[in-house]
Amino acid sequence: MFTILGIPGPLLFGQLLLGLINGAFYAMLSLGLAVIFGMLNIINFAHGALFMMGAFVSWMLLEYVGIGYFPALILAPLIVGIFGLVLERTIVSRLYKLDHIYGLLLTFGLALVIEGLFRNGYGSSGMPYRIPAALQGATDLGFMFMPNYRGWVVLAAVVVCFLTWLIIEKTSLGATLRAATENAPMVQAFGVNVPRMISLTYAGGVALAAFAGVLAAPIYSVNPNMGSSFINTVFAVVVIGGMGSILGSILTGFGLGIVEGLTKVFYPQASATVVFLVMVIVLLARPRGLFGKAV
């Protein structure tokens, strides 16, 4: 067995892969938060609950309707995205004229209500979701065995993050979104239906969270608390990356996942706090975040 810095190779790479998986979820979730914050100026505290809903909806689709994993990857984000659209139209949109803090309080309350409803209906012990047959097993990479499903999660997350970045930075729709983030009244005065664009942006960010939820279902058990256990770290990621930065959210998400994984190898006691330590250091040295624009 080979070792690196006195650590057995398989252990190191195993933790690196775990870190990369966590990083994939951090990236997808903080990306959605960044998109929503840019457009709505609302810190969407319900994001973790909507991630959990994505996992639950895929579980329900399988349990009640017999719809499997791959269709659920499309259907669950669609269903939860529509739920997000209804939330935005009926509740969230009433707060745009008020201070940030109201949006934060409202979405925090929504998260508690959603999680409470699922806990009431399904308990908090969690339900297993089987890895789809096509992604079971493991591949020998030479230096380690990689479970196929974990490789798939990283791949899917990278593709989804890249596509989101591409849409926002390189298409005319993305240019309109960026312009509306900068000066919404001006964009509306050009003839763009900005309120509709805001609703669809919220739905898109929510769908991204739900997609992450479906990916997470076979890894973590499907339970009402799965979102809230993630979301604290995700908010730290957003702060470190810089509010509203698309590329920053993606890179910081993956990067911090890896940092967490490495900490588990070298100093396991700090693995739960290392992200917040990084946050403190970044905020001291660069208050706007690593990729944030000057305020």
Partner: peptide
């Protein structure tokens, strides 16, 4: 004029 958009994107922005 939008700083987060290139000159061409600014030009093409109004539908």
């Amino acid at each position: 004029i939008f700083g987060s958009l290139s000159v061409t994107e600014n030009m093409m922005l109004p539908p």
